[in-house]
């Protein structure tokens, strides 16, 4: 299979006043289409930074980053925003749903940027909410849902535009064991059934075991690379 994500010699540093803080050192990595890759490592190892770079919400200090056939490091902010809306779905640890919007409206948000009719949007939203098993909760507000249900709404929002890539940052980090299992099962289904390429950052060994490939990051370097 072709690599949908190509990371070549990517480095990332942050600046605090005049002090440079290197986070990633020349990372090289290919992720093939349809892969479910888990990134593990201790806090501060650079996992989330690498995820953010792949998702196009941060920029590398150096190196080349090609995702879904686009050299995203070269895109300006506006083009990058459009690229993200079309190619990447995001799943966060704390769900990041908009509290004043219902489950339906939260999932509909990314579709407002697409040229779709109201009826088309409705069809897409109901479809993905059914996929995540929340077809009967569409008019519930986030505060009326459990943590696991909120995360499923977040997953529905991530897949409603049918992106090729899903990035997940500690998707089970704020959930109980049972809810975490449900979310991981759902992500596995999205990978296998819907052929989504998933890059997941996790501290949880059980979560990482659901991935088809496991990478370890330590102090900004890939220290292990293997298949589950």
């Amino acid at each position: 299979m072709a690599a949908i994500i190509q990371v070549k010699n990517v480095a990332k540093s942050y600046w605090r006043n005049s002090l440079e803080i290197p986070v990633l050192h020349g990372i090289t990595l290919d992720v093939e289409e349809g892969e479910f890759m888990a990134l593990m490592g201790p806090s501060g190892s650079g996992k989330t930074t690498l995820l953010n770079l792949i998702a196009g919400i941060d920029r590398p200090s150096s190196g080349k980053l090609s995702v879904a056939g686009t050299d995203i490091a070269k895109l300006n902010e506006s083009a990058l925003a459009k690229w993200r809306s079309a190619n990447v779905g995001f799943i966060f640890q704390f769900y990041n749903l908009i509290p004043v919007l219902t489950a339906y409206e939260n999932v509909e948000l990314p579709l407002l940027l697409a040229k779709l009719s109201r009826a088309e949007r409705k069809k897409h939203v109901e479809n993905v909410l059914n996929i995540v098993g929340l077809g009967d909760r569409i008019y519930h507000y986030p505060k009326q849902l459990s943590g696991g249900q909120e995360q499923r709404v977040a997953i529905a929002r991530a897949i409603v535009t049918d992106p090729a890539i899903l990035v997940a940052d500690e998707p089970t980090g704020d959930l109980d064991k049972n809810s975490a299992q449900e979310i991981l099962t759902l992500m596995g289904r999205l990978n296998k059934e819907f052929k989504k390429t998933i890059v997941m950052v996790t501290h949880d060994q059980h979560a990482a075991e659901r991935a088809t490939r496991l990478l370890h990051l330590d102090k900004g370097d890939l220290s292990a690379n293997g298949k589950n």
Binding site: A55, I57, E77, S78, A81, K82, R84, S85, A86, F90, F92, N96, I98, L109, P110, L113, R157
Partner: peptide
């Protein structure tokens, strides 16, 4: 602030 970050992430423009 976090919500605005979410909006930007989803592709909403300035």
């Amino acid at each position: 602030t976090r919500e605005y970050a979410v909006f930007k992430t989803l592709g909403f423009s300035a």
